[in-house]
Structure formats: structure tokens, C-alpha cells
Nucleic acid binder design. Structure first.
Lengths: 326, 326
DNA sequence: CAGTATGACTTTTATTATAAAAAACACATA
DNA sequence: TATGTGTTTTTTATAATAAAAGTCATACTG
């Protein structure tokens, strides 16, 4: 189709008709990239004066961060709209672009990165039971995300054993069974004990130490007013574990921590039984870890951490039992 | 279309034409399930005599392990081929099916489960460098797997940080950089030290002990003839680490071990520098671990394991350097 | 005449469209 | 009332396809 422009660009009126009047039709792929590039080129044109020459296509493509193919599509349209004159390598500004020249962009959807958070949120909030069949079509509507994106997402989750392919197509939530909770807890323990050991070995000028001291103060502060403010612990808990794990710079660990922390966070929030006592006990356990670390006693810190993680696991499991009964 | 059969099933000759003569056309989805079900129903028909009645659609669908929709499609064809008479719930065998009645099945492709193995194989065998763009189209041809399957596969691998999405679409191999090797080694160490600790705690009647004793013997045997047979170590090494890790029944650990062991295995195979010395040293290290374990000395076993894993890491890194230089 | 820019073409990717299969629904029959 | 069938709706797997990227040969320019 582009051959139309190659030599007699200024006469290609028939292209305008098919291009501009095209309905919001069956686009196999959105042309957002083209639209954004076009607007960016309009911006650039505004910095120039009528009669000025535009740089080479390659330069423009670098400018708009798209391929030359898109740039040429943009140039074609700029010419159709009589913003520029385009003939071979002669590209001249005809007039300053008006705001009416701009192309509308589709309303941006929630970023795909957010899908994980929202999905786990949903699973945990509604306590979707294990072995629930997951309908890609339904989830797609629910989260307003194209089906193929969801399938890729689920394929990723299957690597964590959270979901699995069903024998006859589709997916199921392998979900939050007792085994899953145990294995998750144990995996978490392995990673976190290692983190603790690494913290204990860090030099005195490492930023973790002021952070830990600050956390110790926060724990003491909350401990003093635990009777009324015990629900604040959930937040401190997350910060604490995040701080400990932050010293492990490892892509594999990081990937898992995201999932782990979310799951534990939620389950703690819901297990309301004995919440005050549990939190008070957890504060003591955290303090024991911090104090052992500050004393650079790695072994004591590990023992304290093992104890705390064991409590965590028990709490997680009891929260499951609670759910099963209710 | 099915309304044709509802009442005047025996006269629906025009359906036969469109159905049977249909070319290998644009199937949006393969009808393998239908074909398999059809053949299975033929098998079933063979067990009956002309004049016998077929059971309810539901029963047949349970028999062929497909939905009723497929069963009805099969019944329609059986009728078209005059194997049965079908009118409402009246379904009678007309004749024994012949081998010519069977539907051909598409030649089965390599199982998708195999894709991971083949992909990692390719990466490692050809030493595909980090930051290489991965073309789904190309890989799809290369591994003879539909594109969408590859995309799901890559999405899964991205969870391990092995590949990543490119900003402007497509994928890249984040691949085997120095950082990746370090992080992988460290992650492996964390998991394996934990496994060692678990082994040391196992009761005397656990099957791991005879396995370890057998491994010890194999190591001693190889040690005696190391000068000539040092290349045999690679296999023993894999068996050894697999045995140790097998005691950890954890879905997260298992998922990672698959990838880890493959990567280490290959890299050891290629690093030919000082192979004999390295393997001789590794045998000693393995023996130290096994002996400490058999003595139930957990701490000594861990120390030995830490030492061995450190050597492993060094070897892996030096094998990278080697590659960089060559 | 070397190096860059362009025009035409090829390949790849993202996304939609759609046949096959499953599931749901609504009668009919026994 | 319970089960079986005919029909419709929904979902899934896969192919088709426009947009975008990439490639190559040629043309122009300094």
C-alpha cells in the first residue's frame, strides 16, 4: 500500500479516505505505538518553523522510540494532514500542528504487573478453595486483561505450584491446601534462616543496622501499648521480614519473597483468634532475633529465628483449620 | 447444524457430504479428541452384536472420557456410516465396524513437558549468550511447538529470571551472566545445605542410608581408577546431589532443582580444564560429606557441604571466564 | 565513492476470530 | 421424580492477521 507515497506522495488522497475513515475495526493488534509516536512527532514539529527540514527517518525513529516502519506511517499521515511535505528525503514543515491534529490514545488499562497482586488478592480475600477450576474467560473479564495475558500469567504461577493445568484443558487452583502451607512455610524458613545468617555477618557500617535498631524501637513502642494497638503488628511484621530478606540480593529469592509475603500477610490479617496474644508473642520473638543480631551472635539469632518461623507456621496452619471448620 | 439429525437422522445425507469431504481446513482447534473418542466408540461397538442397543449418551461420554457434545458428534458419524441407527434414545448396532471405519489420528508430537529439557539443552549446548533476543516464531519452528505454547513456557521461565520480556515486545535470554551464575550457586547452596541438615536427622531405617552407602562405594571405586576414568564422575555427581535433595519433599525446591541440576551438569561437562584434578578433588569432598552424614555429625556434614559447594561455584565461574576468553 | 537514507520487502509479534469441546439449560420421556 | 435428549451458551485451543520490527538492495549526497 505504501507504494502510493513513494513518488507522488502529495496526491495520495485516496489513502486518506481509507485510513482516516476506518472504523474502530478488527485490528489484529492495537496501533497505540503508532498513535503515541505520531503525537510525539507532532510535539517535535512544534519546535520547528514552517519551512524547516525534518531529520532522517532513522533519527526520528530514535526520537519516538519506534521502528522506522512506524515513523514512515506517521510521516505519511503528517503529509496527508498537510503538516509536512514529504518527497523522498525532502521533509519540510508546512504549518505548526494544531491540537486537533493529535490522535486520541486508548484509555490506559491497569498495568499487567499489577495482575499478580490482584489475582492473589482475590484468591486470598475470597478464600477460593483448592481444586477450584479457573476459567480464563471469566478471569479475563474479572481483571479486564486479555485472555492470552492471563494464560501466560497462569503458566508463570504454575511454576510456583499455585495453579496447574487440568488434564482436559483449562486450569485449576492447586491452592491453599495444608500441604501447600507446610511446604511454603518450610521453604520460607530455609530462605529466611539463610538471610539471618547473612545479616549477622554484615559489617558495622551496613545500613541494615540502623534499620534494625529502628525496628527494635518500633517493636518496643508497640509492646508498651499492645493492649489497644495490637492490630498494628501486621504492618511491623511485614517490614521486619522485608528488612531481613533485603540483604539477600538474589533474583530467585526475591521472586519468591513477593508471593510468600503476600500470602502470609493476608492469612495473618484474617486469623483473628487470639490475635493480641499472638502478636505480643511475635513481638518478643522478633526482639529476640534483633537482639541476638545486634550482639553479632549468629547462632543465637538462628535459634530465635527458627523458633519464630515455627510459630509462624503453626499460626498459618491453624488459620487454615479455622477456615476448614468455618 | 445438528438439528438435521434430531428427527430425520437417517436421511441426513447432505451432512455426510460436508463433513466427510471437508478438507484439512482451517481448524481453529484440532479435533483429535473427537477422533480418539470415535475410535474408542468403534472399539465398544465391536463388543456388541448387530441389533444390540447402545447405552445413554452420558454413559458413552464417561466411557470415552469426553463431553456429551463429542459423543453426539461421534454418534452422528456412526449413523452416517451406517454402523448404528440413531433416533432419539433409540441407538442400535447395524453392523460390526470395519477397520476402514476408523479415523486417522495426527502423528503425535513430542510431549510439551519435554520442551523445558530441550530448550535448556539448546541454550547450554550452543552457549547462547546473555541478552540474546529470543524469537518465538523461530523457537516455535525449531522445537516444533505452537507459538502460544512457547509463550507460556517463556512466561514460566521468566519466573526463574532465566528470560525476560523485552520492553518493545518479544523476549530475551537474560541468560548465563556472571551474576546469574553467582546467584544460582548461592541459591543452590542454601537449598542443599538445608537438605544435608535434613538427611543427618533421618532415622536409621530411611532408604537414604543404603543409597548413600552405595554412592560411597561408587566414589571409592572411581577414586581407585581415577586416572583413566575421571570423566565418569559427571554422572556420579548428578546422582549424588539428586540423592541428597530427594529427601526434601517440597514442590518449590523440586521445581528449582530441575533447572539447577541441568545447568550445573552441562557446565561441568564443558569445562575440560583440569578435569581430572577437579573430579578427584570433588570425589574427596563428596566422601567427606557422606562420611560425616553416616557418622550423624550434622555440623561436620554441613561444613563439608559448604566447602564442596564453594568449589562448585568456583568451577562454574571459571568455566564462564573460560568461555568469555575463548 | 564511502557512507548513509530511503523504498520495498520479509519476518515477527500482539491480538482477534473462530472451530471444537465443554457446560448449562430446557424439555421430554419413562 | 429421575434420567436422557435436544438445544443453546460458554470456554478453550488454535489459526488468522494487522501492526511493528527488521532486512536488504538501491539511490542519493557530501
Amino acid at each position: 500500500m505504501f507504494f502510493i507515497f513513494s513518488n507522488i506522495a502529495c496526491e495520495s488522497g485516496d489513502f486518506i479516505a481509507t485510513d482516516l475513515l476506518r472504523k474502530v475495526s478488527n485490528l489484529a493488534r492495537s496501533d497505540t505505538r503508532f498513535r503515541e509516536a505520531y503525537n510525539r512527532l507532532l510535539d517535535y514539529c512544534e519546535t520547528l518553523q514552517p519551512g524547516d527540514a525534518l531529520p532522517a527517518e532513522n533519527e526520528l525513529s530514535a526520537l519516538a522510540n519506534v521502528s522506522r516502519t512506524v515513523v514512515r506511517r506517521c510521516l505519511a499521515r503528517l503529509e496527508d494532514c498537510e503538516v509536512i511535505l514529504w518527497q523522498g528525503r525532502e521533509k519540510r514543515i508546512l504549518r505548526k500542528p494544531a491540537s486537533a491534529d493529535r490522535l486520541e490514545l486508548p484509555t490506559t488499562r491497569a498495568p499487567a504487573d499489577d495482575l499478580e497482586q490482584r489475582f492473589l488478592d482475590w484468591i486470598l480475600k475470597f478464600d477460593v478453595p483448592a481444586e477450584t477450576p479457573l476459567s480464563v474467560a471469566e478471569l479475563s473479564r474479572m481483571f479486564d486483561v486479555p485472555q492470552h495475558e492471563l494464560k501466560e500469567f497462569l503458566a508463570g504461577l504454575s511454576r510456583f505450584g499455585l495453579v496447574a493445568r487440568r488434564p482436559r484443558g483449562g486450569w485449576i487452583l492447586r491452592g491453599f491446601t495444608r500441604d501447600f502451607a507446610i511446604e511454603l512455610s518450610e521453604f520460607r524458613s530455609v530462605l529466611e534462616i539463610d538471610a539471618i545468617r547473612k545479616v549477622a555477618d554484615l559489617p558495622v557500617d551496613h545500613p541494615i543496622w540502623p534499620t534494625l535498631e529502628d525496628l527494635r524501637m518500633q517493636h518496643l513502642d508497640l509492646k508498651a501499648r499492645i493492649d489497644s494497638d495490637y492490630h498494628e503488628f501486621s504492618k511491623i511484621d511485614e517490614t521486619f521480614h522485608q528488612a531481613i530478606n533485603s540483604v539477600v540480593r538474589n533474583r530467585f529469592v526475591e521472586e519468591f519473597q513477593k508471593v510468600i509475603s503476600l500470602i502470609f500477610h493476608y492469612h495473618y490479617l484474617w486469623n483473628k483468634a487470639d490475635e493480641k496474644d499472638r502478636n505480643a508473642a511475635a513481638i518478643e520473638e522478633h526482639l529476640a532475633i534483633v537482639e541476638a543480631l545486634e550482639a553479632r551472635d549468629a547462632d543465637a539469632a538462628c535459634r530465635a529465628a527458627v523458633k519464630h518461623l515455627k510459630t509462624s507456621k503453626t499460626t498459618l496452619l491453624s488459620s487454615l483449620r479455622h477456615h476448614d471448620l468455618g
